[in-house]
């Protein structure tokens, strides 16, 4: 499946896939991102300043005094031909502990009520599913997750909260996400993880990367507390 390659302004290129099969696109995005990221400093003629994977696209930024759109597009085409011999390794599976205790889950009752489910049933279904990180965005390290069971999909809150605590696990439409920093937010908050999703001081600042698989593991309030004390 060949994506389209089009300019995004004078110093970026957007590579877009269209297909009915979500998993197919997700794999293509992950593979090409890996290949483009691997064009390292030793290969400076084909180096991009940024490679940004999203749901069905990758945006590549380049330095305008170093290359033109045509040159960037050629490098991307070379990258695409290399993805074919790339063995797709299994994505990393990362477990995220989540406390669904009421203090951390102001919208859990509401979400349960809307879908005529018991709280515990929402937690069970939410934790049984396996999610895939489609992109990082909104705020540094915020993962957009696909894989939410359809019966838990909940439209965003009509008025966003001004402050959502860091680590809040939330549902927004058909997606799930984790607030990596304290920011405003309009998704339904159903739990909280004690893990840090974004630590600017680390060489690899994000816990999750596009392409990773995620599972949520329920934890008690005591465990949450202990975890936080240890950090």
């Amino acid at each position: 499946m060949m994506p389209s390659i089009r300019p995004l302004g004078d110093s970026a290129v957007i590579i877009q896939w269209s297909s009915a099969d979500d998993a197919d696109i997700s794999r293509s995005v992950r593979q090409l991102t890996d290949v483009l990221n691997a064009f390292g400093p030793s290969d400076s003629t084909s180096r991009f300043t940024a490679v940004v994977p999203a749901y069905t696209s990758i945006t590549v930024h380049f330095c305008l005094s170093r290359m033109s759109f045509q040159q960037a597009a050629r490098i991307i085409e070379q990258g695409l031909s290399r993805t074919e011999d790339l063995l797709a390794g299994a994505p990393a599976l990362i477990e995220i502990p989540v406390c669904f205790d009421e203090v951390f889950a102001p919208d859990l009752a509401d979400v349960a009520g809307r879908h005529h489910l018991k709280r515990d049933e929402v937690i069970r279904r939410f934790s049984d599913a396996e999610y895939s990180v489609r992109m990082l965005g909104f705020s540094p390290g915020f993962p957009y997750l696909s894989g939410l069971p359809t019966e838990l999909a909940t439209p965003r809150r009509s008025s966003p909260r001004l402050k959502v605590p860091r680590g809040s696990v939330a549902i927004g439409g058909a997606q799930a996400g984790i607030y990596s920093q304290e920011t405003p937010g309009g998704w339904h908050i159903i739990g909280r993880t004690p893990l840090s999703l974004f630590r600017a001081e680390l060489a690899r600042p994000c816990l999750l990367m596009a392409g990773d698989q995620v599972r949520f593991v329920p934890m008690s309030a005591e465990e949450f507390q202990r975890w936080q004390d240890e950090q």
């Binding site: 300043t49 940024a50 940004v52 930024h61 990082l136 705020s139 390290g141 994000c206 596009a210």
Partner: peptide, 11 residues
């Protein structure tokens, strides 16, 4: 920080 856009960090 252009290289950190993939982590959701603005340039």
């Amino acid at each position: 920080r252009p290289g950190f856009r993939q982590f959701g960090v603005p340039t």
